[in-house]
């Protein structure tokens, strides 16, 4: 079969903007393909998305398939599953990688069943097994405290979703791969979910921040103090998940296993207890400062500098200290 084997990457876009995580996956896919001496095929689905495919072709894909149709304008799990399954059957790749965004995860879970394939969930690393050439994925569990190295023992392709932020975004090159149209056989009745409204505001990911102040439930519902601290220290702002669940902060500020992993030089963590689902997001932080009123709080095991105290007292003092001496 023409183009059989290789690494296949689903490239996600929303309203014409590429998902960062898809590019990260594309970069890793290229690295794997180069090691195995095989090729990378990307797939872009949507309406009027050919320019995005061309961009992916400059960022490591040997071939990019474009499925362009008004029926694919919005992501819906079943319609996207239909089309990607068709592409995968046509190309017969060894591996299929997808960024573990909400849409990517929904697609992957359904697609794995359609293809009869094994699926490794939001891996934080991918390697090739010596001797077999099989894909090994590091799958975090138990809040990210334990990692299982997995492989797909049965079924093809070997599938994995990849946690956003763990691989580098590949730089554009002058060597562009091919862009090919893929005929879409969907009928309107195949799209059973109708997206009737969408509000998306692209924002810089907190995972890229150099400094960050992170607030937890110990800050109560008033986040003005930790936000002021972020401002006074030139830091980004993040939260533990329950604050976002309560609606006092947006979801994209959540740190932890279901939010972002930090890569900051400094994180000041205020009023967070230190559950495994949270602290897994601190692993790559150089220096962690924790403020908590409970001397036995778990968070102190994950901190370089620990302050036992009431956030409502410690934080204002620190703000004035910072304000008082900075120019």
């Amino acid at each position: 079969m023409a183009g059989a084997g290789g690494v296949f990457v689903f490239i996600e876009q929303t309203d014409g903007a590429l998902e960062d995580s898809s590019l990260e996956v594309l970069g890793k896919a290229r690295e794997i393909a180069d090691r195995l001496g095989s090729k990378v095929t990307g797939a872009v689905l949507g309406e009027g998305v050919r320019p995005l495919a061309e961009e992916c072709a400059r960022r490591g894909a040997h071939t990019v398939l474009v499925a362009d149709s008004p029926l694919l304008k919005n992501f819906t799990a079943e319609a996207y599953t239909d089309v990607v399954a068709g592409m995968v059957k046509a190309r017969d790749p060894d591996m299929l990688l997808i960024g573990a965004t909400h849409n990517g995860t929904a697609l992957a879970g359904m697609l794995a069943i359609r293809l009869g394939a094994g699926l490794m969930a939001h891996v934080v690393d991918l390697e090739i097994e010596q001797g077999t050439g099989m894909l090994l994925g590091s799958v975090p569990g138990f809040g990210g405290s334990i990692v299982a190295v997995c492989k797909c023992k049965k079924g093809r392709p070997q599938m994995a979703t990849v946690r956003p932020g763990v691989f580098q975004t590949p730089k554009p090159t002058d060597q562009a791969g091919a862009v090919e149209a893929f005929a879409v056989a969907l009928k309107p009745e195949d799209v059973r979910c109708q997206v009737v409204e969408r509000t998306v505001q692209h924002s810089a990911s907190v995972s890229k921040a150099q400094r960050i102040v992170v607030a937890g439930l110990g800050c109560k519902d008033d986040l003005s103090l930790p936000k002021k601290l972020a401002e006074a220290s030139g830091s980004a702002f993040g939260v533990s998940r329950p604050l976002a669940d309560k609606g006092v902060a947006p979801k994209n500020l959540v740190i932890g296993s279901t939010g972002s992993s930090l890569n900051a030089k400094l994180a000041v963590v205020v009023g967070v207890s230190g559950a495994a689902h949270f602290t897994s997001g601190l692993r790559n932080v150089e220096t962690v400062v924790a403020v908590n009123s409970d001397p036995d709080a778990e968070i102190f095991k994950h901190a370089d500098y620990c302050v036992v105290g009431d956030a409502a007292k410690v934080v204002p003092k620190l703000i004035s200290e910072l304000g008082g001496s900075s120019p």
Partner: peptide
């Protein structure tokens, strides 16, 4: 379709875990 070939604990980096003590002013 998948199998686990090994488990490991995700290494958390060693932290200093220094408790900062003193008056509120000193701590700040």
């Amino acid at each position: 379709r998948t199998e686990v070939t090994g488990l490991s604990r995700m290494r958390s980096p060693e932290r200093k875990r220094e408790f900062i003590k003193g008056t509120e002013e000193e701590v700040a």
